[in-house]
């Protein structure tokens, strides 16, 4: 029972992912929401590496590499948007940005 299999890693990743998802939906601070997205991405990365190890294949690690790059790009653009919005609004509350309401 106490052998370390990939299932342990996957369960941990599922936990982190769920926490990130809940945080994304609950928090109103745009920056914190972004951090939650990073949490979810990391959880996914963890699963990739776990499967890579379990299946003895380099593909999973390659995927992690690309996820890292995309996450970096996403953070750059996302933080740029946040800076632009916050400069005009003096508010980090995502609920204030609702011009698209029907």
């Amino acid at each position: 029972m106490f052998t370390l299999t990939e299932t342990w890693y996957l369960v941990l990743a599922a936990l982190i992912f769920s926490i990130g998802a809940v945080g994304l939906l609950v928090r109103r601070n745009v920056l914190v929401m972004f951090m939650c997205v990073e949490l979810m991405l990391n959880a996914v990365n963890l699963t990739f590496v776990s499967f890579s190890t379990a299946l003895d294949d380099l593909g999973g690690q390659t995927a992690v590499f690309f996820v890292l790059v995309v996450a970096a790009a996403e953070v750059v653009v996302g933080l740029g948007i946040i800076v632009a919005i916050m400069r005009r609004r003096q508010s980090a509350d995502v609920d204030d940005i609702s011009l698209m309401r029907g």
Partner: peptide, 10 residues
């Protein structure tokens, strides 16, 4: 239906 379109990201 436009009530569904709250404009709120969350």
């Amino acid at each position: 239906l436009k009530g569904l379109q709250t404009g709120l990201v969350r």
